[in-house]
């Protein structure tokens, strides 16, 4: 993008591009990716997918926002602390198996039942889903933490001269 603009004769190029198309598309695509990651997450029990892939995809969606905007704006959009997110995810995925040990089975033995719901018909309910929610949150949080840590120095430096909306 920058090199193209330079070829066209813009010799002073802002470090952070205020690209309307990118920003608007990123918002829409973000929603699509998040929805798909939730879809992947739920399909994970019998088919490929699951908490890990879903979490990675969710982190990917947030990183798209990070690319379109900058770290400051992203932090304003999503007021979450990555480390808290990781802790929450880990806590969920360890509390559930421990609680399940009260059924008298070894660790990580799942329990399930089938519910009869009026519209959906027979719906399976698994404790593994709750464990997977923990995995989803942990993976998303960890990936995001790694990327933002790697990016933060550069972004912090660049956001000084970046566009102020």
């Amino acid at each position: 993008m920058k090199s193209t603009l330079k070829k066209l004769g813009y010799n002073r190029v802002h470090k952070q591009m205020n690209d309307v198309f990118l920003k608007y598309t990123a918002k829409v695509v973000f929603l699509v990716i998040i929805t798909f990651s939730i879809n992947l997450f739920f399909s994970g029990h019998y088919t490929p997918g699951g908490g890990f892939v879903g979490g990675l995809l969710a982190a990917g969606a947030i990183i798209l926002l990070l690319l379109a905007y900058d770290l400051k704006t992203l932090r304003k959009m999503l007021r979450i602390d990555d480390k808290r997110t990781i802790t929450l995810g880990l806590a969920i995925s360890f509390i559930i198996p421990i609680l399940l040990m009260f059924f008298g089975t070894p660790l990580f033995t799942h329990q399930y039942t089938y519910l009869q719901l009026p519209v959906f018909g027979e719906v399976p309910i698994h404790t593994a889903v709750i464990f997977d929610v923990g995995v989803y949150i942990t993976v998303a949080g960890t990936t995001l933490l790694i990327i933002t840590l790697l990016a933060s120095e550069q972004f912090m430096a660049e956001s000084e001269g970046a566009d102020k909306e």
Binding site: K83, R84, L90, F94, I98, M101, T105, P106
Partner: peptide, 22 residues
């Protein structure tokens, strides 16, 4: 026998999560 062998793994992990949460 289901609980005992898991404890050496589980106790430090839970403690680690609590420490992260603190």
């Amino acid at each position: 026998t289901d609980i005992i062998p898991i404890l050496p793994i589980l106790i430090p992990v839970i403690s680690g999560i609590i420490l992260l949460g603190v």
